[in-house]
Design a protein around this nucleic acid. Structure first.
Length: 697
DNA sequence: GATCCTCGAGTTCG
DNA sequence: CTCGAGGATC
């Protein structure tokens, strides 16, 4: 008697846990705390321990704990698991529609369903009498691998359908709203994936534990499902969205894709909430395109949208082209991540002598441009990620612009890859390289390294520094090669003849301007640069640790270079933001004879700015005390324009988002900063909103 | 001593 | 944009 009531209690507990599981993993809105959930689960475990014969495969305790497998068994799918033809852009999507319209007049008035194409792993789930009995990978579409034990640990997969039956809650689903008999045997298809947020959290945890991190959410999801030990799979934050009924027996299922999604939802399966139904091609395409732009705001990685004819009967009647069904098409977004071969590793020498490795890649298109080079940051990065020459690597364009190597696809190694070791001598001058203890960077310490000189002069003339227009890297190289320039001060003693002698020979055919004119323009630009502010000159000199910001701070505290050169390390540390390291770097720079010579030459040439008004901070204004970060392109401003605009109203512009940021100003084609702002709860505004803030105060 | 913030330096393609 | 590192802050 007691057994009987305890069994009923167990059943009740299981129903409750399943319900809360559904609330959490499918609806994403839990109604009890994790603690309470764990307590319910614990109680079930306790009862089951006392009565092992009561354990059923759909008990929530059976999600974990299965023993590791030797290998995965093969499973033949009950129906072929199809792939889709791709369409790149709206033009190809329209062509697809036109093609099938000609084949069948019914297409003319057809409806469409648009769903996200999530970058995860396709899985096939089998339910016998409402109980999850088997799960498989897609494999080649006919035969997949049995990963039932792993899938059981994915909490978003209902172990029993329908969910919520008998709980009497308002969220309880009504599977009979379609008036259909739930099939005794039902096979559905879905995508297992990991959200961006969970992926980042997982990688952070792995990194803290000193373990190897994953490359991207897709690899992680795929790797997690292919673990032979289900306990490992259980520890991964896998999510699921279901989108297709593959097969059914002993029952009826909807014959429209939209209803199929509704039906699956009613059975307790998670279904993508951005899926939409359309009866108009233009609106369908507009919606699809809207996600091409908005893909970054999705919580998961999507590599496109799937467009399906809503009428599944019509879709089936249309048949196939090769293996692809005619009734659906995958609208692909431009790739943001691409794999390619790393052919070689080269090394650049920066103006400070830092050696930076870069990857020479087998050219690939990423997001519309051909990429064949990507920075590798530093030599530790190569070692940490275990990047080898000949590896296939995953490459991404950060913020849609600068490509970088995420890491090697180790599964694709052939054994012929070569481990890379950093050079022992500078690739530009051949002098031995040095590495300071505790620092990541390797340096070429040869003061006469020609590459460093080129970079140094390049930096000196750049837009943010002395702003000498018309003096590009090519001309700098030629002037140095011709021996006309051996430090930045030499620019001010250049004659017309010097420039004509060394520069014009090579550039003549590519330039329409007569060489004399080029020389004159250049001399004029050099002359004009003598009027640049102390802040700009300081930042142009390239003292270690002194960039645009620090140069401004120094220029506010010292009237000219002479005064600064006499400052001691102690004096300098009085300035906010200057610590022992930067103070020492400044003192050392002024102490070097070569630099003293440069200073003397500059002074003689009249390049000797005094403390200037440009450095006076705007202490008041409607934006006083507010910190702004700008991302993307603003309609009415240039990059430096918006900075000046905000600063002129007393606001401050910084580069990276932190808790102290007041607003993120959003332009077009924004980068990853938007996501970070959302995480930190920082208000995101556009240009107009910024103006309103100024006007309203 | 640990953690957060800010800055500097190098960076690709067209 | 990313990464490293110096400085400030608790």
């Amino acid at each position: 008697m007691e057994d009987r009531s305890q069994y009923q209690h167990l059943e009740d507990l299981r129903r409750q846990v399943n319900f809360h599981n559904y609330r959490y993993h499918v609806l994403d809105s839990p109604v009890i705390s994790d603690y309470e959930y764990d307590r319910l689960l614990g109680e079930i475990r306790q009862i089951e321990t006392g009565h092992p014969d009561w354990i059923t495969p759909d008990s929530p305790t059976q999600r974990t704990g299965a023993a590791p497998l030797e290998r995965f068994e093969k499973i033949t799918h009950p129906a072929p698991i199809l792939s889709l033809a791709n369409a790149f852009g709206s033009q190809e999507t329209r062509s697809w529609f036109e093609r099938i319209r000609k084949l069948d007049p019914r297409v003319d008035s057809a409806r469409f369903v648009v769903e996200p194409k999530i970058d995860g792993l396709s899985v096939i789930l089998h339910y016998r009498d409402g109980v999850f009995v088997q799960g498989a990978t897609r494999g080649d579409g006919e035969v997949g691998e049995d990963i039932t034990a792993n899938l059981r640990t994915v909490k978003a997969i209902p172990l029993k359908i329908p969910v919520g039956q008998g709980l009497g809650k308002q969220d309880a689903v009504q599977p009979d709203k379609f008036g259909l008999d739930i099939p005794g045997y039902l096979v559905v298809r879905g995508e297992v994936f990991i959200t961006h947020a969970d992926f980042e959290k997982l990688n952070q945890e792995l990194e803290e534990a000193g373990k190897k991190t994953y490359l991207n959410p897709r690899n992680t999801a795929a790797g997690s499902l292919r673990q032979l030990d289900p306990n490992l799979t259980a520890s991964r934050p896998l999510a699921l969205l279901v989108y297709q009924i593959v097969f059914s027996e002993d029952g009826q299922v909807p014959t429209s894709q939209w209803e199929a999604l509704e039906y699956l939802k009613s059975l307790g399966f998670p279904v993508a909430d951005i899926s939409r139904q359309f009866d108009n091609v233009d609106e369908m395409i507009a919606y699809t395109e809207s996600w091409k732009v908005g893909r970054d705001s999705l919580p998961y990685e999507a590599d496109g949208m799937v467009i399906k004819l809503d009428d599944l009967t019509l879709s089936a009647d249309l048949g196939f082209v090769g293996k692809d069904p005619r009734g659906a098409v995958a609208y692909k977004f431009p790739a943001q991540e691409v794999t390619t071969k790393l052919i070689d590793i080269g090394v650049n020498v920066g103006r400070t002598g830092v050696l930076t490795p870069y990857a020479v890649l087998d050219a690939v298109e990423i997001g519309g441009v051909i990429v064949e080079r990507a920075t590798l940051h530093n030599f530790d990065f190569i070692a940490d990620k275990d990047i080898r020459i000949g590896d296939r690597v995953l490459v991404k364009r950060a913020g849609e612009v600068i490509p970088y190597v995420i890491g090697p696809i180790t599964d694709l190694r052939t054994g012929s890859e070569k481990v890379y070791s950093p050079p022992e001598s500078c690739p530009a001058c051949g002098q031995p390289v040095e590495h300071l203890e505790g620092e990541v960077a390797w340096y070429c310490v040869n003061a006469a390294c020609p590459e460093q000189l080129v970079r140094n002069v390049e930096h000196f003339v750049s837009r943010g520094a002395m702003d000498i227009v018309g003096l590009g890297i090519k001309i700098v190289e030629q002037l140095i090669e011709a021996g006309k320039v051996s430090d930045v001060a030499d620019l001010y003693s250049l004659t017309r003849a010097d420039i004509l002698d060394s520069v014009t020979k090579k550039d003549r055919k590519s330039n329409k301007e007569p060489p004399g004119k080029i020389a004159d323009n250049l001399l004029e630009a050099i002359e004009a640069s003598k009027q640049q502010s102390l802040r700009r000159l300081l930042s142009a000199l390239g003292i270690r640790g002194v960039g645009e910001g620090m140069a401004g701070d120094l220029a506010r505290n010292y009237p000219d270079l002479e005064a600064l050169s006499r400052a001691t390390a102690e004096d300098l540390q009085e300035i906010d933001g200057v610590g022992p390291n930067i103070a020492e770097a400044i003192v050392n720079w002024f102490a070097r004879p070569a630099n003293q010579q440069v200073l003397a030459k500059l002074q003689a040439a009249g390049v000797w700015p005094q403390a200037d008004s440009e450095t006076a901070p705007a202490a008041s204004g409607s934006l006083a005390g507010l910190k702004f970060v700008v991302t993307g392109t603003l309609p009415a401003f240039t990059r430096s324009g918006i900075k000046e605009f905000i600063e002129s109203h007393g606001g401050q512009v910084v580069d990276s988002i932190s808790k102290k940021t007041s607003y993120l100003v959003l332009g077009e084609n924004p980068g990853s900063k938007v996501k970070r702002a959302q995480e930190l709860g920082i208000p995101v505004i556009d240009e107009d909103a910024l103006r309103k803030i100024i006007d309203n105060s």
